[in-house]
């Protein structure tokens, strides 16, 4: 972790307009931005876009293929697949934003505490966080779900638990690198309190890289939500989630493949979108996070 900045000032950061321009000029970043914007728009305006109520049953019309009335067909209870997928975007967005947001805040607090606090606190926090990280993510998630029972709340809690360790370690590394920087020393000499240094001077500098990593983790969280809901251990039916729609499609794979094919598309598009956007953002905003290379 030698990239920790030693004299980073706000002036060194590219101006937003320039960064946005750079992002949109790269085909990968532009594709990602468009896909993510589409995903967020669909999630926000779901009630306006969806042609049907995602929960309305129509058993006689079950497991239909694509038609004019149902562009993506219907599921085993005759519910309109397109409407369910549109509302599924809402579920995915809510879980992803809630979980990564909360995990980011907790990770930021723990990381700054470890990086700026006393040595013993750093040691203790790092030991616990390392142990947390040494648990294979999925098994840890499954163990927590076994204890708490599957629900949306458990899902968010699990995602927070498995991701704070990485965020805290990133923030800690950044904080350690900055703690002895000249502008921090200058503040200290001028008698600034520790709280002031932490919130006014350290936080703005460590939050940038954290935001980039958080945005790159959004697709991971979307995948985890879909995966656990697919296993029936995440979002409980009948609330539409891409994962449980995929499971419905998987169960009726031989009778009506249209359902499972349609269910995978938004998941793939949104994870690709977020990944492309994350890559683009990283290159446009903070080249130092790039994986090596001259």
């Amino acid at each position: 972790m030698s990239f920790a900045a030693d004299s980073r000032t706000d002036g060194a950061r590219p101006r937003p307009r320039g960064a946005l321009g750079r992002l949109m000029s790269e085909p990968m970043g532009a594709t990602g931005a468009v896909l993510v914007a589409l995903f967020i728009a669909v999630a926000l305006f779901a009630p306006l876009i969806a042609p049907y109520d995602p929960l309305a049953l129509d058993i006689p019309a079950k497991l239909q293929g694509p038609s004019l009335a149902h562009p993506a067909g219907t599921d085993q209870l005759g519910r309109d697949t397109l409407s369910r997928l549109i509302y599924g975007a809402r579920t995915a967005l809510a879980i992803a934003m809630g979980a990564t947001g909360a995990a980011g805040v907790i990770g930021l607090a723990l990381g700054m505490m470890a990086g700026y606090g006393p040595r013993w606190l750093d040691g203790a926090l790092m030991l616990v966080l390392d142990s947390l990280a040494s648990l294979p993510m999925i098994l840890f998630a499954l163990a927590v779900i076994t204890v708490l029972g599957p629900s949306a709340t458990t899902l968010v809690f699990v995602i927070i638990l498995v991701s704070i360790s990485g965020y805290a370690r990133l923030v800690r590394a950044q904080t350690l690198g900055l703690a002895n920087a000249e502008f921090i020393q200058a503040e200290r000499t001028m008698g600034a309190s520790n709280l002031r240094i932490l919130f006014r001077h350290l936080m703005p500098n460590v939050v940038g890289p954290l935001l980039i990593v958080l945005s790159m983790d959004v697709p991971v969280v979307i995948m985890l939500e879909a995966g656990l809901s697919y296993l029936n251990l995440g979002i409980r039916p009948p609330v539409p989630s891409w994962g449980n729609i995929l499971y419905d499609g998987y169960s009726s794979l031989r009778q009506q493949p249209a359902l499972v094919i349609a269910a995978g598309v938004p998941l793939v598009l949104s994870t690709i979108g977020f990944t492309f956007l994350g890559e683009g953002l990283r290159d446009a905003l903070d080249p130092r996070l790039k994986g090596g290379g001259p």
């Binding site: 990968m28 995966g227 995929l246 499609g249 499972v260 998941l267 690709i272």
Partner: peptide, 13 residues
């Protein structure tokens, strides 16, 4: 990047 982004259980299905 696309390969990393596509969840393996969707590929499996």
């Amino acid at each position: 990047v696309s390969m990393i982004a596509v969840p393996s259980f969707v590929i499996a299905i």
